[in-house]
Computed example of a mutant assay.
Amino acid sequence: MHEHRFAIGQSVRMPNRLGTLKTDDLLFTVTGKMPARDRSPQYRIRSEEERHERVVTEDMLEAIAQQLEMADAAEQLFAPKKITLPNTN
């Protein structure tokens, strides 16, 4: 039996590819874990943009937490810092 790689509540993305044309990835939250299908764990996932849940196998998903952490680090590195000057009055 294969272990589930993603946790309930974790943000994941499902790469959206149509043939050789890559379109925007779809973002989801894991809402439940299900038994494996064809030796790949299954998940219930939901998008903020959809009213229904989907059932997908683990090989269809990618974690996005690392990408978000990298974006936060870049924002902190390049964000303008607010400088407070002393009041001279």
Score class of each variant (00 low, 15 high):
M1Y: 11
M1Q: 06
M1C: 05
H2I: 05
H4P: 01
H4M: 02
H4C: 00
R5G: 04
F6R: 00
F6H: 02
F6E: 00
A7Y: 08
A7H: 13
I8D: 04
I8Y: 03
I8G: 00
G9S: 05
G9K: 03
G9W: 00
V12L: 06
R13M: 09
R13T: 05
M14E: 10
T20V: 14
T20D: 15
L21D: 13
L21S: 15
L21F: 06
T23Y: 04
D24V: 03
D24R: 10
D25E: 04
L26D: 07
L27P: 06
L27V: 01
L27C: 04
F28N: 01
T29F: 08
V30W: 08
V30A: 08
T31Q: 10
G32S: 04
G32R: 09
K33Q: 14
K33I: 06
M34K: 15
P35N: 08
A36L: 01
A36E: 12
R37V: 05
R37W: 13
D38G: 03
P41R: 03
R44Q: 12
I45K: 01
S47T: 00
E49S: 13
E49A: 07
E53G: 02
R54P: 04
R54N: 04
R54I: 01
V55A: 04
V56G: 00
V56N: 01
E58L: 00
L61P: 02
E62H: 05
E62K: 04
A63Q: 07
A63S: 08
A63W: 00
A63D: 08
A65Q: 08
Q66P: 09
Q67P: 05
E69I: 05
M70D: 12
A71P: 08
D72W: 11
D72Y: 15
A73F: 12
A74L: 13
A74M: 14
Q76M: 14
F78R: 07
F78C: 11
A79I: 02
A79E: 11
A79T: 06
K81T: 14
K82R: 15
I83W: 10
I83E: 14
I83V: 14
T84W: 15
T84P: 08
L85H: 11
P86R: 13
